[in-house]
């Protein structure tokens, strides 16, 4: 054990146990071509990030992320898209906008997270937070159908697909549903737009891809 070094930020001894240096295979090989493409497609100046980590210190959900928000930006700068494919971070982000608000270079991280989600779904990538993706997709499906959200159908559909309609979870969910119904906070019939032609045009299945 080494002696504490005077002036160490938290007063704790600095450990001499450093993680081993990465092997040549593990070491990052920067690929600068990606950044320009991502910036053009997302409209976010990811290259402006100088790594102050203010985004990540203020992020209310970083405790549940496998990569801190600044790491997502850094991997994009280095062209390491594969590092982001299996990461939970973009799906855990709740778009609370704290990071963008405090970023000294106004890097729009929430927009970047959204762009990445869309890109990963387009690539047919399985999301590490499958349930978050599913909930968003079912929500959007309802909007595409009626122009408005029908919360009852959304919840029922979600529970059927995730198993929440069966087993011990089902009892809890049913009890909450009944309470909401009793309190007059659940509608049994959906509202919909009178004009729905625009919905058809907006949510038309694009060639080669598909919406939920």
């Amino acid at each position: 054990m080494s002696e504490p070094i005077a002036g160490a930020p938290n007063g704790e001894p600095l450990s001499s146990d450093r993680p081993p240096a990465p092997s040549p295979e593990e070491a990052i090989r920067p690929d600068g071509r990606w950044l320009a493409q991502v910036e053009a497609a997302s409209g976010v100046k990811a290259g402006a990030c100088y790594g102050c980590k203010k985004c990540s210190n203020g992020c209310p959900l970083s405790f549940a992320m496998d990569l801190h928000p600044y790491q997502v930006v850094r991997y994009l700068q280095l062209g390491q898209m594969d590092k982001l494919e299996g990461s939970s971070t973009v799906w855990i982000c709740a778009s609370c906008q704290t990071c963008l608000t405090r970023c000294p270079n106004q890097v729009d991280l929430p927009r970047l997270m959204d762009w990445l989600k869309e890109e990963l779904v387009r690539r047919g990538q399985a999301a590490p937070e499958e349930k978050v993706r599913l909930f968003h997709q079912l929500f959007l499906k309802g909007v595409a159908k009626r122009g408005r959200v029908f919360e009852g159908e959304l919840m029922a559909g979600y529970m059927l697909k995730t198993g929440g309609a069966f087993g011990p979870e089902a009892i809890k969910n049913a009890r909450l549903g009944l309470t909401m119904l009793k309190k007059g906070r659940m509608k049994l019939l959906p509202e919909r737009n009178k004009d729905r032609r625009w919905l058809k045009a907006l949510f038309r299945e694009p060639k080669g891809g598909s919406h939920a």
Binding site: D114, W115, E118, V121, H136, F139, L140, V143
Partner: peptide, 13 residues
């Protein structure tokens, strides 16, 4: 119509 909420901006800009 619905504003799209988190779902729309997450999956379909």
């Amino acid at each position: 119509n619905c504003c799209g909420a988190s779902a729309a901006h997450s999956l379909d800009h």
